[in-house]
Design a protein around this nucleic acid. Structure first.
Length: 206
DNA sequence: AACTCGACCAACCGCGATAAT
DNA sequence: GATTATCGCGGTTGGTCGAGT
């Protein structure tokens, strides 16, 4: 059986103190990231490695962009979620200075609701027939046809020109298999303008 | 002023993937 | 090839805070 990642009885849990943060920052500045298993002891922290890694990645990293999401960031998250689903690390990898946790939280607290208010099912990005549509009330035909726009799988998605193959997220982001990479590449290559025009979220946020 | 409720977000947990042995 | 150790991801939880009553 897998051993626990750390000896739980000897580790702190919960919110990080300023001193703990400083210790972690100092240690990583000196020695760099990595080897999270041994880091806590080496840095003099009573935390498990996992906790240190999370704290650094989600909060302490100097390149993090804190604060509200810009409108273009929102749009990008929605588009990427339509393409990738809940692959938060991949999505975050396309948003400089944002973490997967931050993107995930923002999606769950803001964007899901926003889509639902627009009558779009946030799970599959299809127009929800039961909800009122707030967008393009005069264009009922595109709304109807859009309900099936994702049924053909990723290859039916419009060309988002997101260049996902050129910049696979860095060490802090998700791993992506060659098959997935291929899939994404194919979806970028398949140019289906008429299908693209029928995609609810992708249409609304163009 | 006290209470309730919902939103937000940091942190934890479980597990799959991968590397090392 | 099997086993073990570690990393990293995604789902979930729990604490805090502000608005409403």
């Amino acid at each position: 059986m897998r051993k626990p990642c750390c000896d739980k009885q000897d580790t702190n849990k919960g919110a990080w103190s300023k001193q703990e943060d400083q210790k972690l920052i100092d240690y990583i500045r000196k020695h760099g990231e990595g080897c999270w298993r041994t880091l806590p002891q080496a840095a003099g922290l009573l935390r498990c490695g996992k906790s240190c890694r999370l704290r650094w990645i989600n909060y302490l990293r100097p390149d993090l962009k804190r604060g509200n999401f810009a409108e273009d960031e929102e749009d990008l998250i929605i588009k990427l979620h339509a393409l990738l689903g809940n692959r938060w690390s991949l999505i975050a990898g396309r948003l400089p200075g944002r973490t997967d946790n931050e993107v995930k939280n923002y999606w769950n607290s803001h964007l899901r609701r926003k889509l639902m208010n627009m009558g779009i099912d946030p799970n599959n990005h299809r127009l929800n027939q039961n909800l009122p549509r707030l967008q393009n009330p005069q264009d009922s035909s595109s709304a109807t046809s859009s309900a099936s726009c994702l049924e053909d799988g990723p290859s039916a998605l419009p060309d988002l020109n997101l260049d996902l193959t050129m910049s696979i997220p860095s060490s802090t982001s998700a791993k992506i298999s060659p098959e997935e990479k291929q899939k994404i590449t194919e979806s970028n290559l398949s140019k289906e303008p008429e299908v693209a025009a029928a995609s609810p979220t992708l249409l609304l946020f163009q």
